[in-house]
Amino acid sequence: MSERHDGPRSATNGNGANGARKRSGLASLADEDFSVIDAIGGPRGVVESILPGVVFVVLFVATRDLHMTVMVSAAVAAVQVIVRLIQRQSVFGALTGVMAVAICLVWAWFSHDARNYYLPGFLVNTFWIVVLGVSLIARVPGIGVLVEFVRNPATDHLGDWLRAWRDDGPLLKAYMMVTGIWIAVFALRLGVQVPMYLTNHVGWLGTARLIMGVPMFAAAIWISWLIIATPLHRHRIAEERNS
């Protein structure tokens, strides 16, 4: 993967106002003070997400030396974590990215095929299409489950927890719509990138992965927030009145 935004995430990133932890990924939709920049991990998070992928595609296209490309990309990812350790900053996000990149690099290395650097991303996107699709059929939208679990983790009485937000018609409709949007995002990635993989256009595949990574994720999560924000805010007000 050339970016870390292949699927939902629930990490935190840095400190917000009053020391509050800032969530990133789709979990940030649960925040009242939603920020696209925070959702994608901030400027540094964006750089850390895309840099190994940029190095991989540029170096491979320029040299066609897979082993050197893998080693340099791995070194770049490792340096990012080391720098955070030296600066005594949180390394959770960077470590997550390194693990994702490591899987892709190992796959490419042992298969002796640069295209396979991108294969794990296809599997991740397929997984989320299936999971979110099933959740829509069951009318328990996956994005709603994620957001509500972040807001109010269900430790017991799962049925009551589900009814608490599923009985809110406008909120359920918003979660269903947003879940459908994310299915479309993952399906579009596959529809564009798999043909490039099959025809061995590594340069174009890497470029498409970068464009359809962080930029598409940012656009999709912003649209998701626009759809969810009002019904979720009203739901919060109703919760406060009933508490």
Rank of each mutant, 00 (worst) to 15 (best):
N15D: 11
A164L: 09
D160Q: 14
V76H: 11
F92Q: 08
T179F: 08
T63G: 09
V131Q: 05
S90I: 07
D31W: 03
V46S: 04
V147D: 15
A154D: 00
F149M: 08
A138W: 12
L162Q: 13
E48D: 04
L198A: 15
R84L: 12
A174V: 10
M196I: 01
G53D: 06
L66D: 00
P120F: 13
V36N: 00
V58T: 08
G213R: 08
V202L: 04
L51E: 00
T63H: 05
V134H: 07
G19N: 01
G191Q: 00
N13T: 07
F127L: 15
S135C: 06
A39I: 04
V131C: 06
I103R: 01
V70P: 02
P8C: 10
L162Y: 13
W109S: 10
F60T: 12
V36P: 01
H233A: 12
V55P: 04
A30Q: 05
V145W: 05
F92P: 00
P195N: 03
L188G: 06
G19E: 09
F122K: 02
F34D: 12
N242S: 08
F110E: 03
A62Q: 06
A164Y: 06
A219W: 08
N200S: 02
A39R: 01
I181Q: 11
V81I: 12
V61T: 14
W128Q: 07
G93L: 07
W109L: 15
L29W: 00
V130D: 01
L95P: 10
V124A: 14
V147G: 13
L172M: 12
E3C: 08
R84I: 09
V214T: 03
R151V: 11
L171C: 07
R9F: 00
D156Y: 14
V178I: 15
F92K: 04
A94E: 14
P170E: 03
A17P: 09
R44H: 11
